[in-house]
Nucleic acid binder design. Structure first.
Length: 587
RNA sequence: GUGCCCGUAGCUCAAUUGGAUAGAGCACCAGCCUUCUAAGCUGGGGGUUACAGGUUCGAUCCCUGUCGGGCACGCCA
């Protein structure tokens, strides 16, 4: 990834940039030849000051000098600054920096002045980045696993926008495959059953959910499916007993197509439209929206799939074997070659996926993000191989993986299967725990870690859910401000000198961390760190709330403390919005 | 069997990407509402970071091996 130049600091991190510059100046005086970037860390403990740098420890080796001696020289060479109160050496050679009260207080006025733009940056420099996520087969309702991808993807997209990328959110619709045919046939069979026109058994590998029957009922009225002669179906059941399940299903699909003729395609289109509309509505209600729903079928219709295979062939990366066309992906880092066109002439899913990625790159995105389920990780090398073979820079493709969600009910792991209709849908989850709790819970873990979703806990309406803790902090602040009933615009100008309480010092320190938390979360595609930050900030606030009075004290102190509260509320609201969680003012 | 990911408090998870004494939430124990919302706060017990080596000023993080878990290895999508 191309990173923004550090020479273009944003106003909000000017303090850290200034301190880094001063340190760099001091280091170059002590060690002119050691071209080493100065690492400035926020101190974890108050006794270590506000910032710390291990630069002396790192320099010691190349200088062949004792770390503490180097630290001493760096400290001596450090220019005076209105931002630096004092500098101390500690431990093996750490340099701890204590900032002045003025530097400390500036964070509050910065936040109040910048409002929702605080924490933004120009890191992305307006680069266009495509984020593809969810992309579930439109063969049934979204389940709780898709929900994680949705919540994660939406939050990542928000973060990328926040740090200055131009983000395009996209859903890849797998509307061209065999699974759609199976759903179509399943719907057809349910319609026949509903109309009492068949006694045949329902195939075990068909889609069994109740939603299929619901679609069948409306399809029955819509397409008059009962007008087709049924004899061939009865014949089919008579001869299909010896087939294995998959062969039987393929035969069933073929039977349906020949029997229904043009009506099959109508039914197929209907089933797809119903599922997509349902999926879209579900996601919209979840606060997840897309700029584009990209159809896989369109890649076949436009000839893009055939074209991309031809391109590979023209480059000499395709060979014939056993009647199939193979892409020599092993020449580009994959562990073995892959079929792109089967011996029956049909292109594989891989072929259309190559065409899709070529399409993405040809649309001119600087960066392409595929948020995939972790079960697809073995698939990544072949996609990269295809891109490289076609002359694209596959470093512009990033594939963050989202691990599975394991559901636990009554302390036992619940199995999920879309086919068998045994799953908890995202809708059920949302209605039981609420959108806010679901969104927050989903991103509370690193995306590449398994998520154990305890349904009993999540559906118990209990207060254990951490999202309430943060929202409550936000609501409490607004209650205080409401009680105060003063002119909030005055808070950004009031004197902050009274803020000397240890809790206040710590809170200002935490507020200052926000931009780098957001920045790092965006770079790492790690919204969970925002969630943890918010929980920690809320905890600090709640403790503060119980420690000092806000309204029943001197007006100057009240104003200063309310300015601090106002800044906290702003960041709580901003952080929650990045995660797609509301920030209510009353609870 | 091969490849990728993972293993941290009783449970679920963090840890500023190699920094100082590894931190939270549940759960457990003891306290705090006549006062700005108790969906809150304060205090307490809890750890050989799976194990064994290695790299260096310094390792939960990097390297090697072992054990254990997950996922993927199709002319499915």
């Amino acid at each position: 990834m191309t990173t923004a130049s550090p020479q273009i600091p944003d106003p909000h991190d000017s303090l850290e940039v200034r301190l880094t510059k001063l340190l760099t100046q001091a280091v170059s005086a002590v060690a002119p030849d050691a071209a080493m970037p100065v690492v400035l860390e926020r101190a974890r403990q108050a006794q270590h000051g506000d910032y710390a740098t291990p630069v002396a420890l790192q320099l010691a080796k190349t200088l062949r000098r004792a770390p503490r001696d180097v630290a001493h020289d760096v400290m001596t060479a450090l220019p005076a600054s209105p931002w630096i109160e004092k500098v101390e050496m500690a431990g093996p050679g750490f340099i701890n920096i204590f900032i002045t009260a003025a530097a400390r207080h500036s964070i509050i006025s910065d936040i109040l002045r910048m409002g929702s733009t605080f924490g933004s940056s120009s890191r992305g420099q307006g680069q266009r980045i495509q984020v593809e996520f969810v992309s579930s087969n439109p063969t049934g309702p979204l389940h709780v696993g898709h929900g994680r991808g949705a919540a994660f993807g939406a939050s990542v997209a928000n973060l990328l926008v926040k740090v200055g990328f131009s983000v395009h959110r996209e859903y890849y619709v797998n509307d061209a495959g065999r699974q759609m045919d199976i759903l179509t046939v399943s719907t057809w069979l349910r319609a026949l059953q509903h109309a009492g026109l068949t006694q045949g058994p329902f195939p075990p590998n068909g889609y069994q959910g109740d939603y299929v029957t619901l679609m069948a009922v409306s399809a029955l009225q819509r397409f008059s499916l009962d007008q087709f002669p049924m004899d061939p179906l009865t014949q089919f059941w008579a001869i299909s007993g010896t087939m294995d399940e998959e062969t039987q299903m393929d035969a069933l699909i073929a039977t349906a197509k020949s029997l229904l003729g043009p009506a099959y395609h109508q039914l197929h289109g209907f089933v797809l439209a119903v599922q997509l509309a349902d999926c879209k509505a579900d996601l919209e209600e979840f606060g997840v929206s897309f700029d584009e729903w990209f159809s896989e079928q369109s890649l076949f219709d436009s000839g893009a799939v055939a074209e991309v295979v031809s391109r590979l062939e023209a480059e000499g990366h395709i060979y014939l074997q056993n009647g199939a066309r193979w892409f020599r992906s092993s020449a580009f880092g994959d562990e073995k070659d892959r079929v792109v066109q089967r011996d029956n002439g049909l292109f594989t899913y891989f072929a259309s996926d190559i065409a899709y990625h070529v399409n993405k790159f040809d649309r001119g995105f600087d960066l392409v993000l595929d948020l995939w389920g972790a079960d697809h990780h073995g698939y990544i090398p072949r996609v990269r191989a295809a891109l490289r073979a076609l002359g694209y820079d596959d470093q512009r493709l990033k594939v963050p993986l989202v691990q599975f969600v394991s559901l636990f009910r009554h302390g036992e792991k619940a199995q999920m299967s879309t086919r068998k209709g045994q799953f908890v849908t995202l809708r059920e989850l949302r209605s039981e725990v609420g959108n806010d709790a679901a969104r927050f819970f989903y991103v509370l873990r690193k995306s590449d870690q398994h998520l154990d979703f305890d349904l009993d806990l999540a559906t118990s309406q209990s207060q254990d859910n951490p999202v309430y803790y943060i929202q409550y902090a936000h609501a409490r602040i607004h209650r205080v401000l409401q009680r105060w009933n003063g002119d909030q615009s005055l808070l950004s100008h009031c004197t902050l000198e009274p803020l000397t309480h240890p809790a206040e010092i710590a809170l200002m320190q935490s507020l200052r961390a926000y931009p780098s938390v957001v920045d790092q979360a965006a770079v790492d595609y790690a919204p969970h760190s925002v969630a943890f930050y918010l929980r920690d900030l809320a905890a600090e606030f709640h403790a503060y709330y119980n420690a000092v009075p806000f309204l029943d004290t001197e007006p100057v102190i009240t104003a200063a403390r309310l300015a601090l509260l106002s800044a906290i509320a702003q960041l709580l609201k901003d952080g929650l919005s990045l995660l797609g969680v509301s920030a209510p003012e009353t609870m």
